[in-house]
Structures are given as structure tokens and as C-alpha cells.
Write a protein that binds this DNA or RNA. Structure first.
Lengths: 224, 224
DNA sequence: CGACTTTATGTCTCTGAGTGACATAAAGTC
DNA sequence: GACTTTATGTCACTCAGAGACATAAAGTCG
């Protein structure tokens, strides 16, 4: 197992006089392990299907017992979440850093969408396949939706702040849901229609950026 | 058990010479049973929490074995779906009957939203409580999201048709997702903020209609 | 009425997800 | 090496959910 065995990294900042003993895993290390389990799970889900893969198999693929898998993830399907949430987290960060008064449609190009957008990173192709799997695997679909759903309150807060409204106001709440849904639909559309037609990475990324640009445009226009 | 026992209703139109034997349950009868199980499940979920209620208990509450519960629903949490989907189905019907060229914001008032809108019907209060439960019960949240998610393709087709575009075009797909999300967010906001402040039925319904009107307005405006 | 047929539900059994309790190993301090 | 804390493994358990089969319900036809 390349993953979960031992190997505590040094915590950078000393907490105020921690008692002696084995130092706990850093959050970074935990995230690494989670990601390793996630990749193994996706590999199995794609090749065998979700129902046919057991927690035991997922653990074995990383050299870990099933019990440990459940310590890192609350359910079998949720093992894919780190792959899903990476892209959304980048968008949420972009939105958070975005100042008030500026139009939303500047988010991606200013933030180097080619590298930082959703579906970026080393798992681009994997996540694409995973999103496609969402169509046939209801359990994965649920995780996919849940991942976006959990980002929604943060969007709502940001939009409410920009508009100078209370955080639980109806309008920014609805706008956040719409913004979120537009992004999700765009990523899905990309994964389903244009992903595998462009094996070349840069072309594919350009397509994705264009798709997201349309999403922001439609979000700004509204549904007529 | 008031529910699932026997009692086949007469199929209205004879299928072309069905062979002899016990007639199958009509779809209406099946829907009745599903609804009865759903109500019992919600009752238990609200009072005990989801984790604490077993399939056996749900079945017992309707006088049916757990095996039968799984014949009507694929999972414990999905027992609540009939309550959730009723409102969305009404909206989908409204949208389907809506002619091309007309603005979306006429949907509800013309369709007597007070009686036919989401959260209408005898289960109005129950569904409100259920939507609130969604905040603390991830399993129910997943069903709630899934219910709306499944309505999305129909919305996308309707919008694509209105715009004279192919069904899988990017823009109507995104618009459908936004429209859907706006409705969902509005219903949630209503259930969380204004539902129990108006125990009076008509006042509550008026509030809901107003909330939905805002949702359609925001959907039409877009997120600025 | 009873023989026959089809459907709905119950019973039994099994796999696997997920949890809690406890044992053991890893990785540090003194 | 003694001691402490954390991470993981092992074992035992509950329950969700599915498959196989038996039985009951509800009809038709003689």
C-alpha cells in the first residue's frame, strides 16, 4: 500500500504544548490518503460498476482494511467526492476572492480557468468519466448533486454580501441556486458531449472554458 | 393494515384478452399504497429520525412486511419521494401545457397555484416538515435533490422546443437547471422561513405563491 | 361449488454496508 | 526501554436490500 501506512508528516506549527505521543496525521496527509482511496474507488466503479465493488476491494486496492475506508468516508459512493469537489472548491474560492460590484463573468479568465477551473488537474479525464457514470449510477449521481448542493450556502452568502442583503434573503438564495445549477449543468454537458471528442488536453480545456463562459452568460441573462 | 391488503380495483379498459387469474393492481391502487407507506415513513422519520427507523417499522405501520416495502421503494429514504414529487409534477405539467412564446412567469397564477402549486394538497404541512428535515438528514436531502434532478430533462426539452433548438443544446440545458434550482430554492426558503409562521392555510398558500413568483422573476432576470 | 391460473405478499436466507469495542502497531517523548 | 498518543486492524453485530420459494388473494370456467 502506497497510501495509508504510517508516515506522519511534521505538523508545521506547534499547538500549545501538545502532550507526548505519536503525532496525529496532518490535514494534508489525510487529504492525500482520501484522494488515494478516491482514485482507487473510481477505478473500480468505472470498470466493475458501483454495486459490484465492495468496500473490501476498495481498501485492498490501497492496502488498507475496509474498516479504514469507512473511517475516511461515510459511505461507498462518497469515496468519489474528493474528485468531484476539487473543481467546485476552485470556483468557490474564485467567487470568494471576487470583489463586490464586478460582473460575475470575469471569474474564470482572470483566475486562469485553463489550470484552475473545474475538471482541471491530473484527474481531468477520470472526473469526466465519473460524471458520465453519474447517468447510470444513481448512487454516484446523488454524491454529484450533493457536492454542488453543499457549495450553495457559500455562494448565497457571497451574493447577499455583494447586494448588501441579509444572508438568508430570498433573492440571493435563489440566485446562488441558479448560479450553482448553471455551472453544474455546464460541466455535465461538457463531460457528456465534448469531452472525449478532444483527446488533446489544451483543446479540451479551451472547450471547457468556453462552455463555462456560456454558463455564466446564461446565468446573467436569465431564462427568458 | 388499511393499505396493501388485497382489494384490486377493476382495470377500466380491458387489455386484449388477458388470460384468467387474479387481476393485477391498477396503477392508481399502487400509487395509493405507495402514498400510504410514504406517509407512515415520514411520520417515523420526523419523530424518531431516519437512522432509528427500520424498514420493518415502516412496514408494520401499514400492516405490511418489510419485504413489501422494498417492493414499492428501492431504499428506506426513497419512501418519502411521493410527497416530494407531487409538487414538482404539477409544475412540470404546467410547463408542458404552456404554449411557446409566452413568458414563464404566467405559469402559476393561471394554473390556480393556490391549489395546484408545489406543497399543495393534504400533505402540505407534512412536506414542509420534511423539507426542514432535509437540513439534518443527508439521506433525505439526497432524495429531495434527486427528485428535482429527475424533472430537469423534461424542463430542458420544453425550453429547447420553445427556442427551436435541439434537445441537447447547451443553453436550454443550462436554463432548465437554473429554472429548476430557482424553484427548489424558493420552496426550501418558504419551508424554512415562512411556513410555520402562518398556520392559517390560505395565508400560507398566498405566501408560497408570492415566493414562487419571486423565483420566476429572479429566474427571468438572471443573476447580475 | 371446486379446479385452475395469475398476481401480491410473506418467509427464509444471504451478501454487504457501516458501527462500536477492543487489540495492536507506529511514532513520538523522556 | 518505559510511557503515551494516534492510526489501523480484527471481531462481532445490526440492518438494508435482493433472490428463491411458498402461500394467499382474486379472479375465470366447468
Amino acid at each position: 500500500m502506497t497510501a495509508a501506512r504510517g508516515r506522519t508528516s511534521r505538523p508545521t506549527s506547534r499547538a500549545v504544548s501538545r502532550p507526548t505521543g505519536r503525532p496525529p496525521l496532518t490535514e494534508e496527509r489525510k487529504a492525500e490518503i482520501r484522494l488515494e482511496i478516491a482514485r482507487a474507488a473510481v477505478e473500480l466503479f468505472v470498470t466493475q460498476g458501483v454495486a459490484a465493488t465492495t468496500g473490501e476491494q476498495i481498501g485492498a486496492a490501497v492496502g488498507v482494511s475496509s474498516r479504514t475506508v469507512w473511517r475516511y468516508f461515510p459511505s461507498k459512493e462518497s469515496c468519489v467526492r474528493p474528485l468531484f469537489s476539487a473543481g467546485i472548491d476552485r470556483i468557490a474560492d474564485s467567487l470568494r476572492r471576487w470583489g463586490p460590484g464586478r460582473p460575475l463573468d470575469g471569474i474564470f479568465d482572470s483566475e486562469r480557468a485553463d489550470e484552475d477551473g473545474p475538471l482541471a488537474g491530473p484527474d481531468r479525464a477520470t472526473v469526466g468519466a465519473l460524471v458520465r457514470l453519474t447517468r447510470t449510477e444513481p448512487g454516484l449521481r446523488a454524491i454529484w448533486l450533493q457536492t454542488y448542493d453543499e457549495a450553495e450556502p457559500a455562494f448565497a452568502r457571497a451574493l447577499a454580501e455583494r447586494a448588501g442583503l441579509p444572508a438568508d434573503d430570498l433573492r440571493p438564495t435563489i440566485q446562488a441556486a441558479m448560479f450553482n445549477a448553471a455551472l453544474r449543468a455546464a460541466v455535465e454537458h461538457y463531460a457528456l458531449h465534448t469531452a472525449d471528442t478532444h483527446p488533446d488536453r489544451t483543446t479540451a480545456q479551451t472547450e471547457l472554458t468556453e462552455t463555462l463562459r456560456v454558463a455564466l452568460e446564461v446565468a446573467a441573462e436569465g431564462v427568458g
